[in-house]
Amino acid sequence: MPLLSIDDLRVVLGGQTILEGIDLQLECGEIVTLVGPNGSGKSTLLRTIIGALTPAGGRLVRRPGLTIGYVPQRLAIDPTLPMTVTRFLNLPRRRSGEAVQQALAQAGVPELSSHQLMSLSGGQRQRVLLARALLEKPDLLLLDEATQGLDHRGTADFYRQIERVRRETGCAILMVSHELHVVMRTSDRVICLDRHVCCQGTPERVLASPAYQALFGPDTADALAFYRHEHLRERDTASPALAQVGAAHSMGASA
């Protein structure tokens, strides 16, 4: 049985149909990336999966006992709320000190436990959010543009961490991203969304598909060339200079 099975899903927000005819199956341990232009319903789909939104039609079946870890786009914490990282990781349930420390280590920030949430940089905060999601021991990890506001280095590091998490925990990952070039490398499957599923498949197939190119413009060919080039290299040795080039291309692609 798949972790999650979505069948002809329709979501309506404020009288407007945001998602229509969505079919999606998630299996154990796979990394699936949602791409799509602004307003294409990527975040809406994630929020429907976590139960924040109620579908107007269709079926959404979670495998019984499925645990979901959710990493939002960003955490807008009010400066008047004092909160240490440890206290945050104990919300809403108390965790053992060991579990907290292990989750922080898994997210790549073992040194942050006594820091104030407010004082963290954007990248640190995303990793703390990742640690909190990992504490759930999730079968499925949902990431909503988790690298928004991070620089190229930070983004690449973050996705390497995600791959490591999958390797260590075996959880499935469904993520929304704009950083096509980076994400393509880590994804088993890409789903291109524009209120409906335009196309899906392996990263290469999606990049080459006419539906994808119609959405993101003809420059996507450059991203594809970059992706192939990058794919041949060892994953952990991508130089910052190359990441820069890739970012320039994907910016052109999404414009």
Binding site: R47, I50, G51, A52, I68, G69, Y70, P72, L75, A76, I77, D78, L81, M83, F88, L91, P92, R93, L142
Partner: peptide, 19 residues
Amino acid sequence: WSSLLTATLDADLARANGI
């Protein structure tokens, strides 16, 4: 208390926890 704090931090984060 815990639910209130979680919901105060982020509504969707709370919903993902069943709050």
